[in-house]
Simulated scan of single mutants.
Amino acid sequence: MKKKLFWIAIGQFISACAYCQILNANNLVATGLGGLATVFNRLTGADVQLLLIIMALPIFVWAFFSYSKKQIFYAGFSYFMFTFYVGIVNRFLPQFLTDPIAAAISGGVVGGIAGGIIMKQRVANGPESIVALYLKEKKGLSIGSYYLIINTVVIFSSIIYGDMTMIVYSLICTFVQSVVTDKLIIGFEKYYNVNIMSDQYLEITQFIRNDLNRGATFIQGMDTSNVKKKMLIQAVVNQQELIAIKEFVKSFHDDSFICASISNNIIGRGFDVE
């Protein structure tokens, strides 16, 4: 629990830096309640921290009677740390003022790092997550669709005081942030699930085990073109190993067949992608 809280606090500090010192400083709009707080701040001049609290409080009160206290605790702690850090970084850290495209990319990268750190803790990271969970359970709306809708509405609401150019840059920032977050969660290395149908299955398996140091699985298969039994080999390899397997199988100059697809969420010996 202490480890989760530590990394949530670190992630939200980085998130607050991206929100205040990069996005808000360069007139870009963040997603979620942070983005709404920015819009209302620029329209009314109200304090951002106060707006964040006012918008989140009703959701947490409702959620307190609807969901487990553990889930609400983590979501509340995460949101509290973000709100707290917003006030700190606004007062003590310098703003990163630059051109819009540099702000969009740098804000997306820093925000994506923060999002990846928090999401790897597998907890709700704020009131938006609780609403997303409710809509998924009660209305059948996927979490991805919910975030797409709410973030689009938030960003385009800034047209009230801004222009379309800044909206485009804000969308670029959101895209970069999602890509960076995914990479931190899934990993930068690409792995492939390889299926090989060949009469040379013993030689290919020996190559996979000895030369590539990967495991392989045999599955009894049937070639429907000549109704002949063949052995299907399955293995999970990285990109460089996939190239090596292709070249090795091609060297037989026969009718061996290879099918490879990208595979995520790999857990086990020799792999560290979760």
Rank of each mutant, 00 (worst) to 15 (best):
K2W: 13
G11T: 06
F13Q: 02
C17W: 09
C20K: 14
C20E: 13
I22G: 05
L23Q: 09
G34I: 04
N41R: 05
L43P: 02
V48A: 07
I53N: 03
I53F: 15
F60K: 04
W62Q: 02
Y67H: 04
K69R: 12
I72V: 13
F73L: 13
I88C: 06
V89W: 08
F92T: 12
T98N: 07
S106Q: 07
G108V: 02
V109I: 15
G111R: 02
G115L: 12
I118H: 00
M119D: 02
A124Q: 07
G126V: 03
A132S: 04
L133F: 04
Y134Q: 03
L135G: 01
K136Q: 12
E137N: 09
E137M: 01
K139N: 07
G140W: 01
S142W: 00
I143N: 00
Y147P: 01
V154A: 04
S157A: 14
I159T: 09
Y169N: 05
I172D: 03
I172S: 07
S178H: 07
V180M: 10
D182E: 14
I186A: 11
K190F: 11
Y192Q: 07
M197V: 14
M197T: 06
Y201R: 02
I204P: 03
F207R: 05
R209S: 14
S225E: 12
V227A: 12
K228M: 08
M231G: 01
Q234A: 12
I243W: 11
K250S: 14
K250A: 14
F252C: 09
H253N: 11
N264Q: 13
R269W: 04
R269K: 15
F271W: 08
